[in-house]
């Protein structure tokens, strides 16, 4: 149980787009880190935030709630939030929660930058 087990997240900025990329499970343990990094991004809102989920094999409702909060922050800031690269298991929870039509979802990072 060390700090190494926290969710690693990278943030990159280019041309008004910020790409936030978590690597690992976004569950009750990992969601607080993601929440903190999303809040950090919106302290100076970009025009577009892409959350690259290609390296997230698992997400529970804590992670989904964090992304809903992110969407609300984006709406308040007049920014666009796009979720990219969802794995099937993660996509499944959005479908169960009927949020798959609420979020902007792109197949991959390239498509996300064009949405």
């Amino acid at each position: 149980m060390t700090a190494e087990e926290n969710l690693p997240i990278t943030i990159e900025n280019s041309d008004g787009t910020t790409v936030l990329k978590p690597s690992g499970d976004v569950d009750l343990s990992g969601a607080p880190e993601l929440r903190a990094r999303i809040a950090e991004v919106f302290s100076d809102p970009p025009a577009r935030l892409v959350i690259d989920l290609s390296e997230v094999p698992y997400m529970d409702s804590s992670g989904v709630a964090t992304l809903v909060e992110g969407m609300q922050l984006a709406n308040q800031a007049g920014a666009t939030l796009v979720l990219a690269g969802m794995q099937d298991r993660v996509k499944s929870i959005f479908e169960i929660a009927r949020l798959d039509t609420v979020f902007k979802i792109a197949e991959d990072l390239t498509a996300a930058k064009e949405l």
Binding site: S61, I96, A97, L99
Partner: peptide, 18 residues
């Protein structure tokens, strides 16, 4: 209610759905 899009409150829905 899933029409009410907000953070939280999804866990029980997911358990019952699955």
């Amino acid at each position: 209610d899933l029409e009410d899009v907000r953070p939280g409150g999804l866990g029980v829905h997911i358990m019952r759905e699955i």
